[in-house]
Amino acid sequence: MNEQQYNTLKEQLTPQTPVFVNVLKAFGVGGIICSIGQAISYFYMIFFDFTEKTVGNPTVATMIFIAMLLTGLGYYRKLGQFAGAGSAVPVTGFGNAVISAAIEYRSEGFVLGVGGNMFKLAGSVILFGVVSAFFVALIKLILVSVGVASW
Rank of each mutant, 00 (worst) to 15 (best):
G74E: 02
I64E: 08
I103W: 02
I139A: 15
F110I: 10
M68R: 03
S35H: 05
G95D: 05
Y105G: 02
D49A: 13
E11A: 15
S107M: 04
I126L: 15
T51F: 04
M1E: 09
G74L: 11
F134V: 14
E3Q: 12
G147V: 08
G95A: 09
A61T: 11
E3M: 12
E104L: 11
Q12L: 13
I66W: 02
A133C: 11
Q38R: 06
V19T: 08
F48W: 09
G147W: 09
V111I: 15
N22S: 09
L138Q: 07
C34E: 02
G72V: 06
T92V: 15
N117F: 08
G93I: 04
L138H: 03
G116C: 06
F48K: 07
I126H: 05
M118G: 01
G74W: 08
Q5I: 07
V136D: 05
A101R: 00
G80F: 04
Q81F: 06
T8Q: 14
N22P: 01
A39P: 01
G72L: 07
A85I: 13
G123V: 07
V111C: 01
Y42S: 12
L127P: 01
V60D: 02
F65M: 14
E108F: 11
V114Q: 01
V144R: 14
A61F: 15
V19M: 13
A149D: 07
S41T: 09
S107Y: 07
N117W: 03
S87W: 01
L70Y: 02
M118E: 00
C34T: 13
A88E: 07
I126F: 12
T17Y: 14
Y42A: 12
Y105N: 13
V29M: 13
I40G: 02
E104I: 06
K78Y: 09
F82K: 07
M1Y: 10
Q4L: 14
F94H: 04
A88H: 06
L24T: 04
F50V: 04
S107D: 13
S150M: 04
Y42F: 10
L79P: 05
A67H: 05
I66H: 01
F134A: 14
V23R: 11
K78L: 15
S41V: 02
I126Y: 08
L70P: 03
N117D: 05
G86M: 06
V19H: 09
Y44R: 04
E52W: 06
T14G: 09
V29Y: 00
F50K: 14
G129S: 11
Y44T: 02
S35L: 14
Y105H: 14
V146H: 03
A39Q: 06
P90G: 08
Q81T: 08
T92S: 10
V21I: 12
L141Y: 09
T92M: 15
I126T: 04
A101I: 00
A101W: 01
N22K: 13
T17Q: 13
G123H: 05
Y44E: 03
V114R: 00
Q38M: 11
N2W: 05
Q4W: 04
A149E: 11
L73G: 04
P58T: 02
Y76E: 01
S145G: 05
L79Q: 08
G37W: 00
S87F: 01
I36P: 00
A133F: 06
Y6Q: 12
A26T: 05
G123A: 07
L13Q: 13
G30F: 05
L24Q: 10
A97M: 04
V55S: 10
S124Y: 10
G109R: 07
